[in-house]
Amino acid sequence: MIDREQVLHVARLARLELTDEEVERMSGELTTILDHVERMNELDLDGVEPTSHVVALENVLRADEPRPSWPREQVLEPAPDPAEGAFRVPSPQA
C-alpha cells in the first residue's frame, strides 16, 4: 500500500508537482501495480546474480582525443533563460 505521504515523498524526490487529485490517483495506481510486481516474491532467488547488462562487453574506451566543442550561440539557443554566456537559473541558495 502506497499511501499519500509516500506518494508525496517520492514526488518530491522525482521533482514532480502533483495536484491533490493526482496524489490520490497515484496512490491507488501505484498500489495496484506494485501488488502485481510483488508476485516476484514467490520466486526463490537466493544465489542468483543480478543482470545489469545483457551485452558481454568490457573496457569499451575512447582515445583521449579532443573533438570540436559546440559554438556557444548554438549551445545557448534552446536555453529558456540565457544570460552572460551562461544558463541562468533561480539560485539554489535562495
Binding site: A83, E84, G85, A86, F87, R88, V89, P90, S91, P92, Q93, A94
Partner: peptide
Amino acid sequence: HVGESGRIHGSATSLVD
C-alpha cells in the same frame, strides 16, 4: 551565484557554466 537579477523581482539567480 549572482544575487538579485532584477528580472524576477527580489529573487537571486545563479549562472551555470
